[in-house]
Computed example of a mutant assay.
Amino acid sequence: MNASSNFFIGIDVSKPFFDASLMAVIDHQKQSIETARFDNTADGLKAFAKWLKSFKVSMDQNTLVVIENTGIYHRLIWSFCNKKGLSLHIGNAAHIKWSFGIARGKNDKIDSIRICKYACKEADTLKASAVLNPVLMQLKDFMTSRTRLLSQINSNKQYIKELKNINDPTVQKVIEQAHRTAIEGIAQSIKDIEALINKIIAENIELKHNYDLLITVPGIGHLTAVYLISCTTNFSAKITGKQLACYAGVVPFEHSSGISIKGRNRVHHMANKELKKLFHLSALTVIQYYPEFRTYYNRKKEEGKHPMSILNAIRNKIALRVVAVVNHQKPYVNNQLIAA
């Protein structure tokens, strides 16, 4: 393949199918964009490969594929790109959307074309996403399943509680018995999933090593450590503490403009809410059990700071320590990073 030829592919993924747009750049000249739709299945990817071959797309680093992060629906394409040696960037959907500027109207084909143009325009700044790790995907799915099942238990318990004050005692007893059976079954399922999570961590050397480092950080328990590993792909991207804090939504940003808007600094609503909740629980724990953080909390409170503002600062501190122990590969002990 001519070294002066580059290919940019934008893919809009949905559950049943995906739309692909292909732009070739030959000798710095953009060619017309080709589009097609394929089933989001193994057979659909075979057809996609033949389509790329018909346009003589190079299956190497001269081709860049960009897709939006759809949670689970893009995984087949992710695996396909890894096997074919294609550079793949899995982008934040909101970031890609905002890059379009003011856009009127949309459909899957148009979105794929816009993503294709975005890939060409931002090619020099886009970083290739990590290779799909089946073990980490299993861990992430198990953690998500655990959260969903726990939510079902809480929902059932709340429903029973709401009925208790208004229901006939006889009817209430029957309902409670029926829900008790369901709750016990779900609780057992959660235990089974937790056993699988523990098995994955124990059997994988890299995961176990970072897990052991994370739980040395004050406030970071078993579930928080596992969730951090799953949502950061075991810190493979070498993120900074500030990046993790931003991702968790615990970094305050200035909110002002000229002389008319003088708002207080505040965190952004775009965040991983589950991670933010876990960091919040960690902050409550360290205030109660760690003198370093308890002293900090009391001092700031005496200075007149709002309790939630102080808690957010502690969440931020925990995020910074999490990344520090992983990046330095040293456990956290007595507010110092020391060799293991």
Rank of each mutant, 00 (worst) to 15 (best):
K191V: 08
V174C: 07
T170D: 12
I190Q: 03
Q188T: 11
L213E: 01
I197V: 15
K161P: 03
T181D: 06
D212H: 14
S145E: 14
N198Y: 05
E203G: 03
A195W: 01
E184S: 13
L149P: 01
L149H: 01
E184P: 07
I186C: 04
D212V: 06
I197H: 04
N198C: 09
K164D: 10
Q172Y: 09
A202V: 05
R146S: 02
R148I: 01
I205C: 03
Y159I: 09
Q152I: 02
S145N: 14
S145L: 14
N154P: 01
T181E: 11
I160Q: 09
Q188N: 14
A187L: 07
N154I: 05
K173W: 02
H209A: 10
I197E: 07
L149T: 03
K173T: 11
I183C: 00
N165I: 12
A187Q: 13
A178T: 15
K157P: 02
K164T: 12
N167Q: 13
K173D: 08
L196S: 15
Y159C: 10
D168L: 08
R180N: 15
A178D: 14
Q188I: 07
A195G: 09
D192S: 13
T170W: 00
Q152G: 00
L163W: 05
L163F: 13
I175A: 07
A178F: 07
V171C: 12
I183H: 04
I186G: 00
T147P: 01
R146I: 04
N167R: 09
I166D: 11
K199T: 12
I190A: 03
K173S: 10
